[in-house]
């Protein structure tokens, strides 16, 4: 009964899956990226990400079904759900990946649904600030690892403009330089220098936000239901 610890990358995840498929008796899988302070026990094994093993699992999935790899990737992004073992079982199945009467399938589908609903909300809640050099910079602290799912939307939307999004929890970053989208790990973040107009625009937005509410209908409860307190950190209209 081992506790497998992987680095949080998709390749690491697939390496862990490789161990599972080869009969390693796993009790729990731990994602180090979102649990940097986990306490290893005598049953903990920190596995090394092995690209060959990962590749092997990928080609096996491809043989089984065209859609399996994508589903598994999305399920991997639900990194707080602790569904690694379920995903491994899902990969091990021989069909019926759409059968909504199966508990494994339901668990996976629910979490993916959750992932995309968080992504959709973040498409609205994300706030960019204009840096002195013209780059638009935004921060997020999402529950699921939605950062890889945000790039395409903003790339399409913002044309040739340069922008970056930082996941503060996982210390991941995506950057668009006007031509290409790149993903990476955040090593360090220098002092942030805002553009000259940034303050004025924020002030304008806050004024708009405050005056657009109809006083006779105020319901902070309803507002909290839609914008929970924990997502408000980066939303300047709440500060």
């Amino acid at each position: 009964m081992y506790q497998l610890v992987y680095d949080g990358s998709f390749e690491g995840f697939l390496t862990a899956c490789h161990h599972y498929l080869n009969g390693v008796d796993i009790e729990e899988v731990v994602n180090k990226r979102i649990n940097p302070t986990y306490q290893p026990s005598i049953f903990s094994v920190e596995i090394l990400t092995d690209l060959d093993k990962a590749e092997e699992v990928v080609s096996m999935m491809r043989k089984k079904s065209d859609k399996l790899l994508q589903k598994v990737y999305f399920a991997y992004l639900c990194d707080r759900a602790k569904i690694e073992m379920t995903v491994f079982k899902y990969i091990d199945m021989d069909g019926g990946w759409d059968d909504l009467r199966n508990d494994v399938v339901i668990d996976i589908e629910k979490n993916i649904h959750n992932l995309f609903s968080e992504r959709h909300k973040m498409l609205g809640f994300l706030r960019f600030s204009e840096m002195k050099d013209g780059v638009m910079l935004g921060f997020i602290s999402p529950k699921n690892n939605i950062l890889p799912l945000l790039g395409v939307h903003f790339k399409k939307r913002f044309g040739n403009n340069r922008w970056a999004i930082v996941d503060k929890v996982r210390r991941l970053v995506i950057y668009y330089d006007g031509k290409r989208l790149s993903h990476g790990e955040l090593e360090w973040l220098g002092d942030i220098e805002y553009s000259e107009t940034e303050q004025k625009i924020r002030e304008s937005w806050k004024k708009f936000f405050d005056s657009v509410a109809i006083k006779e209908r105020i319901s902070y409860e309803r507002q909290r239901g839609k914008v929970p307190l924990w997502v408000r950190d980066e939303m300047i209209e709440f500060h």
């Binding site: 959709h120 498409l123 913002f158 044309g159 936000f209 109809i214 319901s219 309803r222 839609k226």
Partner: peptide, 26 residues
């Protein structure tokens, strides 16, 4: 589509960017 050299496109499913104090989507 975003116009060349410009900014902005239309999203098929609506996006709420915040909710005002009266609980309406902004």
């Amino acid at each position: 589509e975003t116009p060349p050299g410009g900014i902005g496109n239309g999203a098929m499913s609506g996006i709420c960017h915040t909710w005002s104090a009266d609980g309406r989507c902004v």
